[in-house]
Simulated assay, not measured.
Amino acid sequence: MGPIKFTIIKKLKTNNRFNYTPRYYNGKDGVDESKYTTKIDAYTESYNKNDFGSHWKDARKSSRSRGNMEFNSTILIIVAILVFIFLWIIDFDLSIF
């Protein structure tokens, strides 16, 4: 019997995306092969014209904004109110400080 894997704690491994282009298919345009050492290296970073999933993923990455990364003040106020309600329920006394 092997070790037990806890998938709740550790994230599952995501599948790798296979970027395959047949030999005589001209699906990848605009790749300058002279910049790379081999032809395989030149085409690994580009996507096929009909690979809509990869194009969609790149468009999502480019359109993301970091405007909502700061801590929300509404959440801070709600947490403070809940802490004060909890302290009132357990009859916390501030005179001990």
Rank of each mutant, 00 (worst) to 15 (best):
T7I: 09
I8R: 15
I8D: 15
I9R: 05
I9M: 07
K10F: 14
K10S: 15
K10M: 10
K11V: 11
K11T: 13
K11A: 15
L12I: 12
L12Y: 09
K13R: 13
K13N: 11
K13I: 08
K13V: 10
T14G: 13
T14A: 15
T14F: 13
N15E: 10
N16K: 03
N16A: 05
N16H: 03
R17W: 11
F18M: 02
F18V: 07
F18P: 03
N19C: 06
N19T: 02
N19H: 03
Y20R: 11
Y20P: 07
Y20K: 10
T21R: 03
T21W: 00
T21D: 02
T21I: 05
T21F: 00
P22K: 04
P22R: 04
P22M: 04
P22G: 11
R23Q: 11
R23Y: 13
R23V: 05
R23L: 12
Y24V: 03
Y24G: 08
Y24L: 10
Y24D: 14
Y24K: 09
Y24T: 08
Y25C: 10
Y25F: 13
Y25G: 02
Y25L: 05
N26S: 12
N26I: 02
N26Y: 10
N26F: 08
G27L: 04
G27D: 14
G27M: 06
K28N: 08
K28P: 08
D29H: 11
D29A: 10
D29F: 06
D29M: 06
D29Q: 09
D29W: 04
G30V: 06
G30C: 14
G30P: 10
D32E: 04
D32K: 02
D32P: 00
E33I: 01
E33S: 01
S34R: 02
S34P: 01
S34K: 03
K35N: 10
K35E: 12
K35C: 04
K35R: 11
K35G: 02
K35T: 05
Y36N: 07
Y36S: 11
T37G: 07
T37S: 06
T38H: 00
K39Q: 09
K39C: 02
K39I: 07
I40S: 05
I40E: 08
I40H: 03
I40M: 01
I40T: 04
I40G: 01
I40C: 01
D41E: 14
D41P: 00
D41R: 01
D41W: 01
A42N: 08
A42M: 05
Y43H: 07
T44G: 05
T44M: 12
T44C: 10
T44L: 13
T44A: 14
T44F: 07
T44H: 07
E45I: 00
E45C: 00
S46P: 02
Y47N: 06
Y47T: 10
Y47L: 14
Y47D: 09
Y47R: 05
N48Y: 06
N48G: 08
N48W: 06
K49G: 05
N50K: 09
N50A: 11
N50S: 13
N50I: 07
D51T: 03
D51P: 05
D51H: 07
F52K: 11
G53E: 11
S54T: 11
H55Q: 15
W56C: 08
W56R: 09
W56F: 12
K57L: 03
